[in-house]
Nucleic acid binder design. Structure first.
Lengths: 353, 353
DNA sequence: TTGTAGGCGTTATCAC
DNA sequence: GTGATAACGCCTACAA
């Protein structure tokens, strides 16, 4: 008589085997489909599978061999629009390559981030994608390098997505986008419109790779055009709307000479816009405003925001693709994704004096 | 001599045991910390753990007993703001309860959704959270009910987050928010402002639980105030900005009597706003506009959008909390989260005739 | 306090 | 084509 699994218990290959009168090995072969099995046997097994509503145990499979078919991505939080798009890309590519996706949020805490990497090593994730700019702090970079080596040793791969490489001796895959180039192009655009006094509102602490790159592009453009620079960094540590609002108010209180504002992100720009409007300043007639990221919000602002486009979804896809299909023994990989200016309505010529 | 694991291989408890001169069991006990071990032994073991850079194998642990400590959430996509917030809540609560989070996207495809539920059963996820409104299609509901039973049998739990229960005999946890109540309150608000001809722009096919609920609230408010209703549903199947834009253009082409528009979502409202502005209509002077969801976008529109607030993050948290800490043998659970009107600047009295 | 034996569900290996 | 058997790495009895 076919063995009936205890009700309320999950059936196993053994149950299927018993129920279809074959060995567990044969059941495994039918399911894997990578080994010759007679058509008749296959049919019997499949019937039992359906009747028992059997599904394989992924943990057991991973243990026996085969690996976990899992990719992890670690992100500050899921609600930042840019993060969400990267996540979307990661999930998409992971699914396309037959992998499942683990998500974790670090809320920007480096210690938590390293903890999570450790957790992912326990989980045997095939790739660990770290999303978002990170700190350049020395001890942090060292610990991350060590984590990269540990992952490498267990056949996994650390991927840095949207931040610079750790060093050439760290086994990691890096997929960046061109913060500096985009900021350079945007600044040049403003200069070409006639602006000579541009305020850069870069929220966040120094040493943060993303803002640093953008600021560098801003500076380089000034140098290239032989222009003095009036950069205005704020002490805010977040990239949110509120910090853009506050920074603009402070700026307006102490300096009204600038004719354009370059906000470090679109979200910051949305806060800037509110402050400008409250001060009775029109955009772009009185002051031009540009952002960075080109998230959907950019088109919802009034006026629609001129900004730098970054293909975040592609960033995520590339990260997974490279991590999973890299050349054997290629120690480090590095890809740079281009960015470009999207001209909308928030920037124009400076007001005539 | 202590056994050195082959370089490039992951160390196991055995390696740690050999390296510290104790048995594998003792290592396990030290790591679990739930069993008395002499201080000296513990120290030796921990030292070996550090030296070998050992981490436990989560798959093996799950297999031996203990379970996977994993929660899955399935969502249309990660970039919709509402979805992102629910995901944030799910991840947050999962982490708080010591679980890891698997994400999958279904892109609104019911078949894919059921496939994913199956995958999660293989993964032994402790809870499977289905996020977002779903179709009321009979065969779909039946298959989902069957999936719920299958999950229940393996000790897991299906959670419906933001959609109505499958039926009282399905072992599932449901966490909804009050679509009908919020729409009722908002419609009443518009009526109290003096509006008598309100267009409801509900993108999406009939049978979609979220829109249906909102439309029901819209209708009930009209009934309660003894007002005839002029509902306008569009044929668009998406909830995006574009569908709001198109729907509004069609609406304007055939009917200009309405004095207010109730958009099914904030994102739809953003498209409506563009179309209105293009037509030279001022908001709220010429026509009032309200939305639903209260995503950050609502505050970035000009004028800031009057809308219905939904605490999506709490929705996600509640989903996980209930799934993990339910009473034993409670077949079905049902929670409703409240919604409320947020008054901003996009709705006012109708223009005097 | 510590060690030994067996099992979790699957797949790889080796026989038949 | 099919079936036993031994891993995989951990944990929970049961002994000592």
């Amino acid at each position: 008589m076919a063995r009936q699994p205890t009700s309320g218990e999950r059936p196993t290959v053994k149950d299927v085997a018993a129920s279809s009168g074959v060995s567990a090995t044969t059941v495994s072969r039918v399911l894997a489909g990578n080994y010759p099995v007679s058509a008749e046997t296959r049919a019997r097994v499949m019937k039992a599978v359906r009747e028992l509503d059997y599904v394989i145990n992924a943990q057991a499979r991973a243990l026996g061999g085969g690996g976990t078919k899992t990719v992890a991505f670690i992100v500050h939080d899921l609600v930042g629009p840019a993060f969400a798009y990267v996540g979307q890309g990661v999930e998409q590519q992971a699914t396309a390559e037959g992998r499942l996706c683990l998500v974790c949020t670090s809320h920007g805490d480096p210690d938590r981030e390293l903890e999570i990497v450790e957790l992912m090593r326990e989980q045997q994730a095939e790739a660990v994608v770290l999303v978002g700019g990170g700190s350049g702090n020395r001890s942090y970079v060292d610990r991350l390098t060590q984590a990269a080596r540990a992952l490498d040793k267990s056949g996994s791969r650390l991927v840095l997505c949207g931040r610079p490489p750790l060093g050439t001796d760290a086994p990691a895959t890096v997929v960046e986008y061109d913060n500096e180039g985009g900021a350079y192009a945007m600044t040049s655009y403003l200069i070409s419109l006639g602006h000579r006094d541009i305020a850069f509102l870069g929220a966040g602490e120094a040493g943060h790779s993303t803002v640093d790159g953008r600021l560098r592009g801003f500076e380089r453009a000034h140098e290239a055009h032989h222009l003095p620079m009036t950069s205005h960094r704020t002490s805010a540590v977040t990239f949110d709307r509120e910090s853009g609002y506050q920074a603009t108010r402070e700026l307006l209180a102490r300096d009204r000479k600038f004719t354009a504002i370059f906000a470090a992100t679109d979200v910051v720009a949305s806060g800037v816009l509110v402050a400008l409007r409250e001060a009775g300043l029109r955009v772009p007639e009185d002051v031009s405003l540009v952002g960075y990221d080109d998230i959907p919000l950019a088109r919802d602002l009034t006026p629609e925001l001129t900004t730098v486009h970054v293909d975040y979804e592609e960033l995520g896809r590339t990260a997974v693709r490279h991590a999973l299909n890299r050349e054997r023994h290629a120690l480090s990989q590095h890809t740079m994704i281009g960015t470009h200016v999207i001209i909308r309505d928030s920037a124009g010529p400076p007001p005539s004096p």
